[in-house]
Amino acid sequence: MVNVKKVGDFFSIRELRQKGLQILGLIGLSILAEAQIQVGLAQSPDNLPDDEAAEILQVGIGGTPPFLVESVNGDFQGIVPDIWETIAFVNGWEYELILQTETQAALDAVATGELDLLVGPFSITAERLEAVDFTQPFFISGLGVLLPEESPPIWERVRPFFTRTALSSVGVLLVCLFLVGNGMWLVERRHNPEEFPNHYLRGVGNGMWFALVTLTTVGYGDRSPKTPWGRFIAGVWMLISLIAVSSLIGGLASAFTLALAKLPEDAIRDPGDLRGTRMAVVQGTTGEAFAAEYRAKVVQRPSLEAAIALMEADKADGVIFDRPTLEYYLSQNPDLPLRVADFNLNTENLGFVLPYDSPLALPLDVSIVALEEDGTLVRTAQDWLQGELNLE
């Protein structure tokens, strides 16, 4: 896909976005560019002969949202296009945007001179610097891990209620209710047959009901002892109930806590848990190296969407990719049962790619530093990461 951009096309995309604030930054950049000319930067494109200065730059562009977003009308938007268009406008460059879908192929195109420049969220690594050059970083990122948001099965939630401790506590409680019920029936049946009948099951049943009401301090009053021995048993049971209730509440609270907070035993909580797991990565990205470093089983896919689809098909345990991209993906798909792990695998500097000894290097570095100083880089990134900008 090729998009041809000229200087006059710039405001058709940018005029509705922070135009007032950016104009101030552009003026400062223009002054810096003029200073470059004055000190004899003969290799700057602005100082080349007219036939060379008018040359249209072959600019590759790649990345994933929010760094690169294709709008409904086919234009490129996102963090990278916004930053690049600002830089190109200030330097007076005309260019063709050529979409790059594979990272390694795009880097090779820069190394061979097929592309004058490659813009996108490309990690600056020692291995890549052996073949191509990078600009000053325009964004600091990190590798994150996308994981399924798995809820424990029903049995996992109720299993704490069936542990030996929980069952033994309930068993002891039932035995106590049975003993108190029998005791109340034995001492009350002759003197209080209306409330504790002579029939064993009915009488003991009423006695256990009395014990349960007393235990819970509900106090219905439908059953009460009349004999001294009955009142003695009831008094002792009341004192025992104070301890029994406290123990029961403590046990139930622990069971509820376990039931609601219990995670699967194989949950990935830190980078060390990646060992032996199946991690999907995008071919040509730094995720490959870090997945191997943490001894995960690497499964390569050509795109982020393909990697996520692999995980959703239960053929991978997670996806390793740039954290901002993963978080943006989830913000655009809030109904997916996915989450980004709480840890990062590394910290990465992202920059644009160009050949060594490129005359574009110095003006690009100066422009990026100036945009960082006036806050444009931060504002642009925040607008896209927070979803404040809509596709046109």
Rank of each mutant, 00 (worst) to 15 (best):
L360P: 02
W209N: 07
Q386S: 15
P193I: 09
L360N: 05
G60S: 10
F122N: 11
I79A: 04
I87Q: 01
I140P: 00
F352Q: 03
E293R: 09
L117H: 02
T277C: 06
L239Q: 09
P152I: 03
G207Y: 01
A234N: 05
R17T: 07
T103L: 06
A341S: 15
A259H: 08
T112C: 13
A296K: 01
K297G: 00
G272Y: 05
L252F: 14
L330E: 12
A211M: 03
D270R: 05
K226E: 13
T257A: 15
V236S: 07
T217Y: 09
E373S: 09
S241Y: 05
L99T: 06
V204A: 03
S358M: 04
S71L: 12
L26R: 14
A105H: 01
L345W: 01
T257I: 14
I249M: 12
I320Y: 04
L118Y: 14
P160T: 14
G251E: 14
I31C: 08
K297I: 00
F343V: 08
N47E: 00
I98D: 00
F343D: 10
G181C: 10
I243N: 05
I13S: 15
P152V: 05
I83C: 02
Q38W: 07
V90G: 05
L345I: 00
A316E: 05
L186Y: 11
A131H: 14
G142L: 05
T163Y: 12
Q100R: 04
I79M: 04
L26G: 14
W237R: 00
Q22N: 12
A361T: 06
F134I: 07
V319P: 13
A54Q: 10
L97K: 06
L29E: 11
W384Y: 13
L215A: 05
F232H: 01
E34Q: 10
K19F: 12
G8F: 06
P148Q: 14
A313V: 04
P81V: 01
P152G: 04
N333H: 11
D222E: 10
E96W: 03
P153V: 00
D51F: 03
W93G: 02
P49S: 01
E348F: 00
A296E: 05
T163N: 13
G181W: 06
F321K: 07
L215Q: 02
S254L: 15
N349Q: 12
D75L: 08
L364C: 12
R323I: 08
L68H: 03
K19I: 13
L258K: 15
L57R: 08
F178I: 08
P363D: 08
P271D: 08
A234C: 04
F76R: 03
E96A: 02
F256D: 11
P49M: 01
R339V: 14
L377Y: 04
V7S: 15
G78R: 10
S303A: 09
Q77P: 00
F290P: 00
A341E: 13
V187H: 02
G387N: 15
G120M: 13
Q332E: 11
D342M: 07
R301T: 02
A307T: 07
V366P: 04
A291E: 00
P65A: 14
V180G: 08
P45T: 01
D365E: 10
V80Q: 00
